[in-house]
């Protein structure tokens, strides 16, 4: 009797917190999803990254299939980046001109990435390729960012002045033809490296299932020498446009976008992003870069450990997509 009563109570409790995801086809705890959304949203608002490289693995861990996870995360990133873009727009930190140039390269790169994705999948080693790409990219960029920001912190601590940027000190690729002035970013550089960066981000983003913000922010800061906050703001704008395009593409081509999953994630995400954006603005740029570098490095290390340690079961079962 008592047991039955307790059982009923537990069932009533379950009714309130679990929600069935119609496309992912599984029940999940709403509060787990919300918490994940808030945490990833905070990080994405703080650093101007989409958060896909964190959210996608988390969802797969919950049991969502990789295809649905990648597709549904795009809705969360669209909402987060829109909210973030609005905040930065009001502070007049978005460089629309730079964003437009990056986007021109980015959309072309996305197309190239999608085609490469299909070719690699046919050869059956896509997962491994993605893992190696994660390790290489995140490891390199994470290390570079940590080293650079630590150097800047040490410089500050010793009371030395930061190196003064001289106009003539531009690397060769910024001195290529088609020079353009990006007023908001205070740079006067060739359009070629800008479009190329956009292309590479779009290509890798489509291939690795990430928004590419964590690649774009350091690329803008270190290669184009755009101020940190403008980099973050412009990167958010780019994430917004590519993610809206990705929602449409995934919905039409793969039909794997789970709107319910997306809605819970984005509600958590936008709340987190607001606080993240404020936390980011109140922090010193070097500290921000150090934190992002450590985060990127940690995710890269995690993938490396996963790939090199012995799996609990050497066998895995996947759905045969070609038989569908």
């Amino acid at each position: 009797m008592l047991y039955e009563r307790r059982h009923q109570l537990r069932c009533a409790g379950n009714l309130r917190v679990t929600i069935y995801l119609p496309i992912a086809e599984l029940p999940v705890n709403v509060f787990t999803l919300l918490a994940m959304g808030i945490a990833v949203g905070f990080i994405s608002g703080m650093f101007g990254v989409g958060g896909g490289f964190l959210m996608t693995p988390l969802l797969i861990f919950l049991g969502v299939s990789p295809a649905v996870a990648v597709a549904s995360v795009t809705t969360h990133m669209a909402a987060s980046s829109f909210s973030g873009t609005l905040t930065y727009t009001r502070r007049k930190l978005v460089d629309y001109q730079l964003g437009g140039m990056l986007l021109a390269g980015g959309l072309t790169g996305t197309l190239g990435g999608v085609i490469t994705f299909m070719v690699l999948r046919r050869f059956g080693q896509l997962d491994l390729f993605i893992a190696v790409a994660y390790i290489t990219l995140l490891g390199t960029i994470g290390t570079l960012m940590v080293v650079e920001s630590l150097r800047a912190l040490v410089r500050n601590w010793r009371g030395q002045k930061a190196e003064v940027r001289r106009p003539g000190a531009h690397p060769w690729f910024l001195r290529l033809p088609f020079k353009m002035r990006f007023r908001q970013s205070h740079i006067y550089v060739s359009a070629i490296p800008v479009v190329t960066i956009g292309f590479v981000i779009g290509f890798l983003g489509a291939l690795m299932g990430i928004g590419g913000g964590f690649l774009l922010v350091p690329a803008l800061i270190y290669l184009l020498r755009v101020p940190t906050l403008t980099s973050v703001a412009t990167s958010l704008l780019l994430t917004l446009v590519t993610m809206v395009a990705a929602i449409l593409m995934q919905a039409v081509l793969n039909q794997t976008v789970d709107a319910v999953l997306g809605l819970v994630l984005m509600i958590g995400g936008v709340i987190g992003a607001q606080f993240g954006a404020r936390a980011g603005q109140s922090m010193k740029a070097e500290n921000l870069r150090l934190l992002l570098g450590l985060l990127v490095l940690a995710v890269g290390m995690r993938v490396l450990v996963d790939q090199t340690s012995q799996p609990a079961d050497p066998y895995a079962v996947t759905i045969d997509e070609s038989a569908r």
């Binding site: 669209a78 987060s80 829109f82 609005l86 929602i247 709107a259 809605l263 936008v270």
Partner: peptide, 14 residues
Amino acid sequence: ATALMALGVGFIAN
């Protein structure tokens, strides 16, 4: 609809 929902949520939150 999903894209608009995402933008809506982002806007409201902002």
